[in-house]
Design a protein around this nucleic acid. Sequence first.
DNA 1: AGACAAACGGGATGCCCGTCCCGTATCTTC
DNA 2: GAAGATACGGGACGGGCATCCCGTTTGTCT
Lengths: 182, 182
Amino acid sequence: MRADARRNREKVLRAAYEAFASEGRGVSVQEIARRAGVGTGTVSRHFPTKEALYEAIVLDRMEVLAGAAEGFAAERGPGEAFSAFLGFMVDEGALDHGLADALSGDGFDVVAAARGTGHDVVEVLGALLARAQEAGEVRGDVDAADVKALVSGCIARGRGGADEAARRRTVAVVLDGLRPRA
Amino acid sequence: MRADARRNREKVLRAAYEAFASEGRGVSVQEIARRAGVGTGTVSRHFPTKEALYEAIVLDRMEVLAGAAEGFAAERGPGEAFSAFLGFMVDEGALDHGLADALSGDGFDVVAAARGTGHDVVEVLGALLARAQEAGEVRGDVDAADVKALVSGCIARGRGGADEAARRRTVAVVLDGLRPRA
DNA sequence: AGACAAACGGGATGCCCGTCCCGTATCTTC
DNA sequence: GAAGATACGGGACGGGCATCCCGTTTGTCT
């Protein structure tokens, strides 16, 4: 692969990340090309379809989430690790409209896209959830998909990083609701 | 207004309701016209833009929600009425993709559209919420917009009426989380 | 029943978008 | 430094959509 080709590929990835983050899955390819400072042809040569580009970005973000989950699991107890990861997902989603779109699962199947990469959100979240449930810190009758949906609700509150206090309130409600019933 | 014009207007409204419900805000005007059994011209004569048609449908749905809220408020206590309405919103949203899109508030501002109609969800929900909070049945630090966001999360779980059990689980989590802290 | 106005259908129009293509520019290798 | 391959830019193309328009049909009123 030629050096300029690799450079441009990186530029496209960075620009696409920012564009998807600020405008969501709907940004036009032309806007991404403009932000990257390349032609639209260069974008579609490196990524044959817009969907492929979006998927690449989302999987990158999934890796970040998976890394964070691993960190939390290593340095905190079951309940704390789960709570921290939930809050982390919501914060990331609020700042990244593209990630929020992926997590809301409307028209794009993150789970299918991430299958086999080891960075599937539902798998990663499921592991933390299972540990917290075994420790008796989270009610046992919910699954990872339930939690993902609740997280997407929290993300909807205060999109774009605005109204951080409201976002935290909704997270607090969900975490309280997830405690085992007395 | 001519009789056939009023008939067609009704046909369009019914078809649009069904089309938005099953496919969301993104359905094409042509699809709505097809379902109504009229030409696209008839649709846009009665509703100058697709947005205007969508708004009409959403406001209709808001009226239904407001009516249900009134009923619950009349025949149940503060906490029960609030819980029932929350569950009702989620059930309605799960069956109506168009309503779900409106409630998620991504690209369409229900609150602004319903302002002054007396059927604004946030107002209606806010009234039930305030009553439940005063009775000490719901924690006092959340507002109606918080609840709306949490509801949209529940709707996201089991869209299209599928997986009703999962939907009920998420509602239960939210209701538990909304109880005053012990 | 006849005449006029109102409404209809669906094709025409213009816009935006993703993808493909090709003449031109740039990099790499010998 | 020259030759060949590789990648670039951005316009061309095709498709989908909302909206507009106009020749035709239908309802209404006298």
